[in-house]
Simulated scan of single mutants.
Amino acid sequence: MFLGTHTPKLDEKGRIILPAKFREELSGGVVLARGQERCVYVFSRPTFQEKVEAITKAPLTSRAARDYVRMFLSGASDEVPDKQHRVTVPAALRDYAGLGRDLTVIGAGDRAEIWATEAWEAYYAEKEEAFSSTEEEVIPGLF
């Protein structure tokens, strides 16, 4: 499970050092994909395979499903961490998420997310008040 907030740097070759807490789960390889809200999703290979199996069960006749599958899978990249636990973030994904040197990597349960630090801080500032003031059940069974 991916938890916490980490602040690695992107090196000049477009590589990120995976947070130590995530390394064991990602040691067998990672899949990077376009995330919603202009971040990069980071999945373990088995979790990504589960996601692919789930989304490809959507009816082929559903335009929204076809669009989602195309956007999600066309930007996905299978990567293997090197001996220093670095993973290359492909240029297309760096551009998509506006990634520069300063990054914020957050744990999001079954995945990690890579954000441009400035974008994460803006997102966090915008969403924190709503999170703090939630009065009703947003996620069934959570509270």
Results as ranks from 00 to 15, higher is better:
M1C: 03
F2R: 07
G4S: 10
G4C: 10
T5R: 13
H6W: 14
H6L: 11
D11W: 02
E12A: 15
E12H: 12
K13W: 06
K13Q: 10
G14E: 11
R15H: 04
I17Y: 00
L18E: 06
F22Q: 06
E25G: 14
L26F: 12
S27V: 14
S27L: 10
S27N: 14
G28Q: 10
G28T: 12
G29Q: 07
V31L: 01
G35N: 08
G35Y: 06
Q36V: 15
V40A: 04
V40Q: 03
V40R: 04
Y41A: 09
V42E: 05
S44M: 09
R45D: 06
R45I: 15
P46I: 07
T47F: 00
T47Q: 05
I55D: 08
T56M: 08
K57R: 15
P59E: 15
A64P: 02
A64T: 13
R66W: 06
R66I: 02
D67A: 13
D67V: 08
Y68T: 00
Y68R: 01
V69N: 01
M71S: 12
F72C: 02
A76R: 00
K83T: 13
H85D: 13
H85G: 11
H85C: 11
R86I: 10
T88Y: 02
P90W: 00
A92P: 08
L93R: 01
R94W: 05
D95L: 10
Y96Q: 04
G100D: 15
R101V: 12
R101C: 09
D102F: 06
L103K: 02
G107L: 02
A108F: 12
A112Y: 08
A112R: 04
A116C: 03
W120I: 07
E121F: 02
A122M: 06
Y123K: 13
Y123F: 15
Y124A: 12
Y124N: 07
Y124V: 01
A125T: 12
K127L: 05
A130W: 00
S132E: 14
T134L: 15
E136P: 01
E137M: 11
E137G: 09
V138F: 09
V138A: 12
I139K: 04
P140V: 08
G141H: 00
F143P: 07
